[in-house]
Amino acid sequence: MLRIIEKYGMLWIRLWFGGFNLISGLNYWLPIFPFPKIADPLGATYFDVSVQMGLFQMAKAIEVIAGLSLISGVGVPLALILLFPVTLNVFVLDGFISFLPHIKASGIRNFLFHLILLAYYSAYYLPLLKIWSKPAPLWRNSHLLKKFF
């Protein structure tokens, strides 16, 4: 029973998170829904500056790519890494800067979903936690790429 809940529960989280990010990114390039207005002045300033620097557009492109990856189930571990800076930014802005309860909950929930997915795919990241590590240059181990693709 727990395995069933785990399997379909995690599927739900992955698809929900993927769908959210996909539509959030797509909506910037193809306006489907009205673009959300940012209520707090600090968040609005951050938005204006990030648009002018091109960071917002980059984040939206990452959301589209990662959203497609999460929905299709292709390249999920890499997508979770690429998307983490975006989720972290949203967590800080929505969770701490915004004053609207729904927005706060949304930022915190998305961050939690991201952490849960990272834990669910942990086997792909655990080698990164190795404290003492020998260098393993790609140019001497390129044959290992075959094992991972």
């Binding site: 379909y8 599927l11 739900w12 989280i13 698809l15 929900w16 998170f17 993927g18 769908g19 959210f20 996909l22 539509i23 959030s24 909506n27 489907i32 829904f33 009205p34 929905i71 949304s106």
Partner: peptide, 14 residues
Amino acid sequence: NYEATGTAFAVIGV
């Protein structure tokens, strides 16, 4: 809107 879209993807997918 974004949350509703995520919910739709999740329901259909599951």
